[in-house]
């Protein structure tokens, strides 16, 4: 069976920590970081390897901070 593996890159400085992406992720691959960016917002980050590159987080992100990559393995 063809499997896919995804990865995301977050523009940390533009993230406002609204957490809408976390509600949208079907595989619970993202969480809020304990660290903050220069504006004082907790930013989102990928915490495990469940990501399938489905782009849901990037599609709902109001600030467009997420770039999604996907490969077939």
């Amino acid at each position: 069976m063809a499997k896919v593996k995804g990865d995301i890159v977050v523009d940390i400085e533009r993230c406002k920590g609204c957490e809408v992406c976390i509600a949208a992720c079907p595989v619970n691959a993202i969480e809020m970081s304990k660290k903050v960016n220069s504006k004082g917002y907790h930013y989102m980050e990928k915490v495990n390897d469940n990501c399938t590159g489905c782009t849901n987080c990037a599609i709902v992100c109001p600030d467009g901070v997420i770039t999604v990559y996907r490969v077939k393995i």
């Binding site: 990865d7 890159v9 782009t55 990037a58 599609i59 997420i66 770039t67 999604v68 990559y69 490969v71």
Partner: peptide, 9 residues
């Protein structure tokens, strides 16, 4: 994974 050709969004 993080290569230009793999960008989906």
């Amino acid at each position: 994974i993080r290569k230009k050709e793999n960008i989906v969004y």
